Computed example of a mutant assay.
Amino acid sequence: MSLPYTGGCQCGQIRYEILAQPLTLYLCHCKECQKQSSSAFGMSLTVLRDAVVIVQGKPKAWTRKNDRGREVNNLFCGDCGTRLFHERTYKPNTINVKAGTLDDTSWLHPVGNI
């Protein structure tokens, strides 16, 4: 796959581009990821924050605390509800892209499960 990687929400109101190679992809099985994905796990594609550009629309956000009490900003489409990103306030240089929102997911290979 060549850069940029593109993605967006289910209804198409929000579109984004990833301008640099991701740092890692993992599957998280914590209760919060299970709830947000309605599945056994959530996929998180960690990318440098400056490499993610929203090119259309504006996500809505809400903040929650994770299991360790750290704040996480959750960005999603206000129209269709698709979760797009998690911004961990304790790691401001990176953002977790919800990998299933990429236009092409064929190249994704998780490094592990947590």
Rank of each mutant, 00 (worst) to 15 (best):
Val55Lys: 13
Gly57Asp: 01
Pro4Glu: 13
Asn93Gly: 01
Cys80Gln: 07
Thr105Tyr: 10
Leu84Pro: 03
Val47Arg: 08
Gln13Gly: 13
Thr6Asp: 11
Ser106Val: 08
Cys28Ala: 04
Asn66Leu: 01
Tyr26Leu: 06
Val97Cys: 04
Arg15His: 08
Gln21Glu: 15
Ala51Cys: 11
Gln13Arg: 12
Ala99Thr: 11
Val52Gly: 00
Val97Asn: 02
Val53Ala: 13
Leu3Val: 03
Lys65Asp: 14
Lys98Asp: 01
Asn113Gly: 02
Thr94Gly: 04
Leu84Trp: 06
Gln34Ile: 02
Lys98Leu: 05
Gln56Trp: 10
Asn96Gly: 12
Pro92Trp: 04
Arg68Gly: 00
Gly8Gln: 07
Asp67His: 06
Leu48Lys: 13
Val53Arg: 15
Pro22Glu: 05
Val53Cys: 12
Ile95Asp: 06
Asp67Val: 10
Asn66Phe: 00
Val55Asn: 08
Asp79Asn: 14
Gly112Asp: 07
Ala51Phe: 13
Arg88Met: 09
Met1Thr: 14
Leu23Met: 15
Ile18Lys: 03
Ile18Phe: 01
Arg70Ala: 04
Cys11Phe: 05
Lys31Asp: 14
Leu75Asp: 10
Lys35Met: 06
Tyr26Trp: 09
Val97Arg: 04
Phe41Leu: 13
Gly112Phe: 04
Gln56Ser: 15
Lys60Ile: 05
Arg68Lys: 12
Asn74Phe: 11
Tyr26Gln: 05
Lys65Gln: 15
Arg70Phe: 02
Leu102His: 02
Arg68Cys: 00
Arg68Met: 06
Phe85Thr: 01
Asn96Phe: 12
Leu48His: 12
Gly12Asp: 02
Glu17Met: 04
Asp67Arg: 07
Ile18His: 00
Arg15Val: 04
Gly42Thr: 07
Thr63Gln: 13
Ile95Phe: 05
Asn96Leu: 14
Phe76Gly: 01
Gly7Tyr: 06
Arg70Leu: 08
Ala99Cys: 10
Asn113His: 14
Leu25Phe: 05
Arg83Glu: 11
Glu32Ala: 15
Asp104Ser: 00
Trp107Val: 09
Lys91Val: 03
Met43Lys: 11
Thr101Arg: 08
Arg70Ser: 02
Leu108Ile: 11
Gly42Asp: 04
Arg88Ser: 06
Leu27Ile: 09
Val52Arg: 03
Val111Glu: 14
Cys33Trp: 02
Ser39Arg: 10
Tyr90Leu: 09
Leu48Ile: 03
His86Gly: 12
Cys30Ser: 01
Pro22His: 05
Thr101Gln: 08
Asp104Trp: 04
Arg15Gln: 12
Arg49Ile: 00
Val47Phe: 09
Asp79Gly: 05
Trp107Ala: 09
Ala99Met: 05
Ser37Asn: 13
Lys98Thr: 07
Gly69Asp: 08
Val55Met: 09
Phe85Arg: 02
Leu102Trp: 02
Cys80Ala: 12
Asp50Ile: 02
Trp62Leu: 13
Ala20Arg: 12
Ala40Phe: 14
Gly81Leu: 05
Arg68Asp: 10
Gly42Arg: 00
Glu17Tyr: 06
Cys77Gly: 03
Asp67Cys: 01
Gln34Thr: 03
Leu3Gln: 08
Tyr16Val: 02
Trp107Gly: 04
Gly100Trp: 06
Thr101Ser: 15
Pro92Phe: 06
Ala40Ile: 15
Cys9Trp: 01
Asp103His: 10
Thr89Ser: 11
Thr105Glu: 08
